[in-house]
Design a protein around this nucleic acid. Structure first.
Lengths: 263, 263
DNA sequence: AGGGTTATTGTCAAGTTGGAATAAATCGGT
DNA sequence: ACCGATTTATTCCAACTTGACAATAACCCT
């Protein structure tokens, strides 16, 4: 970064342009067999009363990730640490905030077993919303948060293909059915149980058997083996999402990453 | 973003913390059968004399991507438009710049047929460096630019697996051998010509035959068919990089994309 | 014509996938 | 105790993909 640049109109390294840097967090969880995100209702202008991502200013001696975690906790009352926190991208279109130039660094997180959010800090209210509602634009969102959320949804969907992140949506110990349900909910697609079972059990160190099985439920059925997550972070040969009938996308939008994302 | 947050120490939306936002660009090109990146030599403190990524302040009414392109052109004298420009990530560790808090949004770009950089703006010098040199830490780099470059290299490597971006390193019309060479250079691995040929020709709309063939070279050899890039942006079933003897990585580092990056 | 070089096509065994069938382990009801 | 229903786990098979390598094609030079 040669930001000692002195363009024709003459910047000085200390006379930096007035820009505010914020962080925003798209927090995913699965509740009621639906992929949901955590939003807060804005208590102040602009966009007062609209739903928005939790987030806020980065403090002078605070790292970006640190700021993201702090704002998540402060504004939503969530005390649990996210199972995963990852940078999504930075949004800095000049007029995305009416008050001044604001560049926001967006993060996305996975939170399992989310306790009911209670709204802390100065956020009036915090609540979970199904991503299908957001994808249908059924919600009035503040700023460009609709765009950010859609890009986060695409990121989490594509990350399930080649990483072992799906297990982070599950409790510490889980069955293969539960894990499959994560994929089905996030991808909004049906997955063949037998093939899924074969795939995840042969993927090296994706799952570790605890030796236990579930105690069978009321309706009967063979008890399922119980697993915990292995140490592998990537799946050698990715799972594929086949286009589901309800979900009609042919070409994924720009920036699925880093499958990169595989990486 | 609820950056109406008023933390205990009392922020006001207009009394934003003093942060500078810059952009930096990692520009890749292939010259002399090597993956190379474009760096400038810093003419001012801090890190005067060190090599750094081209970049600089984002101007008040300028988009981030726009700023990245401007700085690339201003500081390196490159006039050609990049074939690809994509956000890599944002780096904002509190003391990454000794002068003040600077958050930088990093981009990476592909530039084919790079004309010799001449160093423009106030950059003393601009030059290409092989990524193997940078990966070996053989170069004194400014700030955290070494880290940024390494993450960009991993990103471009993983993106070749599942996208058709490799063609952007080639001239508008090229042969399959040239395309294969791109993969071999970027991945630092040998690729079987026959299997590669089969793979790229069967991948839907990756390549379009122009009908022409090369006029044979001095050394002889069968003339190669000439192709231009198709419209497909993704490869249905990814190419795999097998660990090469010289390049020993077992687990890819965090955040390859996307295979999103996948996004 | 013959040997060298590069491009392209073909072959084959090994592995992977999707789909369906089968087996295993439990339930509740009779 | 047995039967059907239910859920999980395993097996089978045909279609496809991959990697390694052989064979062919089309050109050079001598």
């Amino acid at each position: 970064m040669g930001y000692d640049t002195k363009p024709p109109d003459g910047y000085d390294p200390r006379a930096y342009p007035p820009v505010a840097v914020t962080v925003d967090v798209v927090t995913f969880t699965i509740v009621d067999d639906q992929l949901q995100i955590l939003l807060i209702r804005r208590g102040q202008a602009p966009h007062r009363g609209r739903w928005a991502l939790p987030g806020g200013f980065v403090r002078p001696n605070e790292g970006l990730e640190e700021a993201a975690l702090r704002e998540l906790h402060e504004e939503t009352g969530v005390t649990a640490e996210p199972r995963h926190l990852e940078q999504l991208g930075t949004y800095g279109r000049p007029n995305r905030d009416p008050r001044m130039r604001v560049v926001t660094v967006a993060y996305w997180a996975i939170l399992a077993n989310l306790p009911e959010p209670r709204g802390g800090g100065d956020a009036a209210e915090a609540s979970l919303f199904s991503v299908v509602m957001v994808e249908a634009d059924a919600l009035k969102l503040a700023f460009d948060h609709g765009k950010i959320i859609k890009e986060a949804v695409e990121r989490v969907r594509s990350k399930l293909e080649y990483t072992t992140l799906a297990a982070q949506f599950c409790p510490p110990e889980f069955t293969i059915s539960q894990l499959r349900r994560v994929y089905e909910v996030v991808w909004n697609a049906r997955i063949d149980p037998a093939n899924f079972h074969r795939k995840v059990t042969t993927s090296p160190d994706f799952l570790r058997s605890t030796g236990d099985v579930t105690n069978p439920r009321a309706r009967g059925g063979r008890p399922a083996k119980i697993y915990s997550p292995g140490k592998a972070m990537y799946i050698s040969s990715p799972l594929m999402r086949s286009p589901s009938p309800t979900d009609s996308e042919d070409e994924p939008p720009e920036e699925p990453p880093n499958r990169s994302d595989r990486g």
